[in-house]
Design a protein around this nucleic acid. Structure first.
Lengths: 185, 185
DNA sequence: TTTGAATTGGGACAATTGTCCTTTTATCTA
DNA sequence: TAGATAAAAGGACAATTGTCCCAATTCAAA
């Protein structure tokens, strides 16, 4: 549920010592919007600490949460390669510390640092390999089974996240979420 | 609906001329299983011609189709980076021609050919950026809106694919699909 | 401590979608 | 061409999930 990549973070901290002017440390308070869907950015971010949510909003104002991002997760990197506008929004859930790096520096690292290059590719492979089974499961199984699965990996999920976020993560309404939580008690 | 990457294919054909022993040309007939979920492979594939489907099967035998793959799409590459078993199956829909390349040669190209490296990263970024909005839309909107959207991008989708495949792509049953198709007439 | 706003919980009903079958149509093979 | 097999269509009913509310609770700011 909360994605992490500690090895990548460790490597970023190492790079930060080596090229301190490549990175800017920023802090966002809970509920701050770090990235806004459909806007153009020239930097991307790697989470040093804290939890944020990555979500897509549709024209009716419904949000669909893609992932909860924790330490070592990067976001805003897809736009480096596609040249498109940001395709999702990122909002801080807890207080969040990030390393910010410009597209330019990021590209330099990708080209000149093979270890970094491999880390980035692995991170992308993870994102693909994680999403597919999750969406597959969500489509095929009942709300009940999906909640039981959440509980397995994060027994205290209903303490960390708001009901609204959980519902948006599962692609259901809060009403259905409540109903199912009751039937599980 | 059918994913393609012509530029990547063009580059692969170029590499094939340069390093003919890196690649094996294979052909699969319609309905052949090219990759099987939960098996280990030491090669990956790039489609030269034809259409295949990439799907995840769950323990109840339900299939969820991730993507339909056309020219220039690669599959089996995630396992190079994760070291895991194949997380989906790939089945030929039409007759399919592929370039097969070993993990080892693939890694060599990634490390020594920056143009190839960039193509691979872009391909992965595309996969991520394409899936997220699609699943988001599928979760939030009615079957009817999803079918109308399919029709927009592929007016003849019901000629190319079986009803079963379309239903598995949308994450619904064929019964629901038929019902909705009728109400649209 | 009070007040207003946001979050949570849930009743009643409607709409959507799935399940289980049976029938029809198309496709393939001997 | 007949018979077998698979694919498509759809009836009847059940289950799930959403919509539209309003009440209860929590929380923060005045």
């Amino acid at each position: 549920m909360i994605r992490k990549d500690i090895d990548f973070l460790t490597y970023i901290e190492l790079l930060y010592k080596k090229f301190p002017d490549y990175f800017i440390l920023e802090q966002y308070h809970s509920k701050a919007l770090i990235l806004k869907q459909d806007k153009r950015y020239h930097s991307l971010y790697i989470i040093k600490e804290g939890i944020s949510k990555c979500y897509i909003s549709d024209e009716n104002g419904k949000d669909f949460i893609q992932e909860f991002l924790g330490e070592g997760m990067e976001f805003g990197e897809l736009e480096v390669f596609s040249g498109n506008l940001s395709f999702c929004s990122i909002e801080a859930i807890t207080k969040v510390d990030v390393y910010k790096i410009s597209h330019q520096h990021y590209n330099e690292l990708l080209e000149n640092d093979p270890v970094f290059n491999r880390f980035v590719i692995k991170a992308m492979a993870n994102k693909i390999g994680y999403k597919a089974p999750r969406h597959s499961f969500q489509q095929s199984y009942s709300i009940e089974k999906n909640i039981l699965k959440l509980k397995e990996s994060h027994p205290d999920f209903d303490k960390i996240f708001s009901k609204n976020d959980i519902a948006n993560y599962l692609g259901i309404t809060t009403r259905s979420l409540n109903r199912t939580l009751n039937s599980l008690k």
